[in-house]
Nucleic acid binder design. Structure first.
Lengths: 217, 217
DNA sequence: GCGGCGGCTTGACCCAGGTCAAGGCGTGTC
DNA sequence: GACACGCCTTGACCTGGGTCAAGCCGCCGC
């Protein structure tokens, strides 16, 4: 009971505590180039999704908490974030990581519209250019360029998940760790090993031993 | 060398042997209702994708072979098919199954445009309403209703893969087998247990023991 | 400066699931 | 009708990775 009360207080604090800061010109330019890297968009089209401010999330804070409804997505301007399923027994299964330029926000929970099954948490202090999902959907329905943009995003993420399925079914822990290092080379240094282990699908202990074996070679 | 020659001969035979049969009125009606179940399409729009004949694939024959380029998709009118990755060591990892009404054709290979990494094989004699992927893309680019159709397909498959990722990371073999039975209840009886095992991510021996334990309860 | 704590490692032991080898059984083929 | 060949099962044994418990170390708050 006291635990429920405490976590309720935390949730309220987090809701109250949503912080933001002005988006610098450099950040706005980077935001646009990130989007254009996915699919061509004219300046007039980009303006329609332009966030006025950047969401600021401190290390350890959530951008999305499992159980809440996912309403926002965005692209990461700075920092490293992690998306994971909290399990009933207290374990966590991490679905993936994001670095600057990557999309944020648990597509599966945005699509389902149900209370989110995954959480998105900041592994370092982070800044995010937020776009409400409803807005993005509306833009996609109205303008062909945004429609193509959203279609490309979904396709890319599908390909990623298909690759992950292959890794989980066909590769052993060492090979999956190698894939992790490859895929997240740019942000590997910012991720604690226990989160890496939970992404690779093993325990921190096993990852530790595995790394020792690799270092010995 | 003789093996290469033999498999070359098989491939040639399969290419020559692509068989088809007239699409019955009942089949055409079912085909349309399958598509409409995904996303609303008017008769005039449906006509644009209407296949003239049904592709006929005998049990054990491939609809798509890894290494070939994926050019066709379609919906299954009758029978059961399986999509799998052939591994270098001779093992197979099966990605999923399809029954009547389900889409066929390895979305990831259609999207990538590269030589296919997975194969699609008939587990029973099957009939397929084929639509060339290029045609579907063209329709999606030209007409909003087909655009929404393709977007919905991609989203659905993304959600499926996300669910699969969760199962593979968070559940043990028994729970994954339960999910399999649930998801494929309608066609379970047509799938050999060794393919089930390869979908669940275990060996046929282990599945056999697991089933014995379940039966004993 | 020191107590605490979170991240990482180490060791000893355990277990789910893999491997290898053999055998039963149904089905198709000549 | 007998042989072969997939499919499934069973048994004996092995191993990759999990569990539990302890210890180390860098860092932070007081």
């Amino acid at each position: 009971m006291s635990i429920a009360a405490a976590s309720g207080a935390v949730a309220a604090w987090q809701t109250r505590g949503v912080r933001s800061a002005p988006l610098s010109d450099a950040e706005r330019a980077r935001f646009r180039s990130y989007l254009r890297a996915v699919s061509p968009l004219a300046d007039r089209e980009l303006e329609l999704a332009d966030p006025a401010r950047a969401r600021v999330v401190a290390r350890g804070e959530h951008f999305l908490s499992a159980g809440d409804r996912a309403v926002d997505c965005g692209t990461l301007l700075a920092g490293v974030m992690r998306e994971y399923y909290p399990l009933a027994d207290g374990r966590e299964v991490t679905r993936g990581f994001a670095g600057p330029g990557d999309g944020i926000g648990s597509l599966s929970d945005l699509l389902s519209g149900e209370p989110a099954r995954s959480s998105v948490i900041a592994e370092t202090d982070a800044r995010i250019a937020v776009v409400p999902w409803a807005r993005l959907r509306e833009l996609a329905a109205r303008t062909p360029a945004w429609g193509r943009f959203l279609a490309r995003i979904t396709e890319r993420l599908y390909l990623l998940k298909a690759a992950r399925e292959y890794e989980l079914l066909a590769l052993d822990a060492e090979a999956r760790y190698a894939r992790f290092r490859d895929r997240y080379a740019a942000i590997e240094g910012d991720i604690p090993l226990k989160q890496v282990a939970s992404y690779v699908g093993i325990t921190p202990e096993h990852l530790s031993r595995l790394r020792r074996r690799l270092a010995a070679r």
